[in-house]
């Protein structure tokens, strides 16, 4: 187990290396990417620009710039080219916001995804199943910003029950939940649809397994068969999926929701930085996202192993 985790962390280093180089190169080749132009200000003379280039090292070869930037990232000294503010401290401010958004939404989508998926799977082919599937596809296909704006329109402007924007720290738990309720729902609807469909398919497969027939032949109640045998086994694919999804949303995929609800999270920060062609924050956020993916997928794999003893011991014949 420990060796497995170490191996995964080893591969994480490689992934981070590759991601950082790729991100760096993208900004190198996009037009108007020279940050010296913006750093030097609107009325800069070529001499100013050259000076800026010298100070920041933009006139050096790409690999030197890369190494220098990486050094700054890992010593925590990296600053934004657009605002001059330390990127790491910005990220530290944004992280709790995004984490609150993602974890809250994940609780919602896992709960509803599992309940709906199990219901649909157990009643495959019935009206319940058809109804749930229709809802799922609606959730999957409706863009989350539309859902977000609809919620804001109804619950903020018409009914005045939830605030339309803003973030309140965990120091005030009620205010925290109050402000995040609508973002949670908007984000969770998409994933609820996906998870419900995945679990439904998994449940349908599991119901056909011989061991479910055995469980019924043992005289277990419907409840016991469903929870202990069907659900327990069907959850396995959901677990590995949720590892990746939580990581992806944490790493900035919640951009749209954060923008819609004006939440100063990582996605919001990323969208602003990309708009300003501001390399350092984008690089840091990308690395953070990749790191989150590696960590969460490792956790998911470990949990997967705990749920399914067969993969703990390979090569049994």
């Amino acid at each position: 187990m420990a060796r497995f985790v170490l191996r995964r962390l080893g591969s994480a280093v490689l992934v981070l290396f590759a991601v950082s180089i790729l991100t760096f190169l993208i900004f190198e080749v996009i037009p108007n990417g020279n940050p010296a132009l913006r750093l030097a200000g609107r009325t800069a003379t070529p001499a100013n620009i050259a000076a800026v280039e010298r100070i920041y090292g933009f006139n050096k070869p790409v690999y030197v710039q890369y190494v220098r930037t990486m050094e700054q990232i890992f010593t925590g000294k990296i600053v934004s080219y657009a605002t001059g503010v330390n990127v790491i401290s910005q990220l530290k401010q944004a992280l709790p916001v995004t984490a609150s958004l993602v974890l809250g939404a994940a609780v919602l989508w896992l709960f509803f995804g599992i309940v709906l998926g199990l219901l649909a799977g157990l009643h495959a082919g019935s009206t319940i199943d058809t109804g749930i599937s229709a809802l799922n596809f609606l959730g999957i296909s409706a863009p989350s910003f539309v859902i977000g704006y609809v919620l804001i329109y109804v619950f903020s402007f018409k009914l005045h029950v939830f605030p339309s924007s803003g973030y309140v720290g965990l120091a005030d738990p009620l205010g925290w939940a109050y402000h995040l309720a609508m973002p949670w729902v908007s984000l969770a609807i998409l994933y609820t649809g996906i998870y419900s469909q995945v679990l439904r398919a998994s449940v349908v497969d599991t119901l056909n397994e011989d061991f479910v027939r055995t469980a019924r032949a043992k005289g277990l109640s419907h409840r016991q068969v469903t929870l202990h045998h069907v659900l327990r086994t069907s959850l396995i694919p959901v677990v590995s999926l949720s590892g990746l999804d939580i990581a992806a949303v944490l790493g900035g995929s919640a951009i749209i929701i954060e923008v819609v609800f004006d939440l100063p999270g990582i996605g919001y920060y990323a969208s602003q930085s990309i708009g300003a062609l501001d390399v350092p924050p984008v690089l840091v956020i990308t690395l953070f996202g990749a790191f989150a993916v590696v960590i969460f997928s490792t956790i998911a794999d470990v949990v997967y192993g705990l749920l399914d003893p067969r993969i703990r011991v390979a090569g049994s014949r």
């Binding site: 397994e209 011989d210 061991f211 027939r213 055995t214 045998h229 327990r232 749920l307 067969r310």
Partner: peptide, 16 residues
């Protein structure tokens, strides 16, 4: 009434 099945490889739940 108890029952045993054809394929013992799949008749037991693999995760318990």
């Amino acid at each position: 009434v108890a029952m045993i099945f054809q394929d013992p490889m799949t008749a037991l739940n693999p995760v318990h």
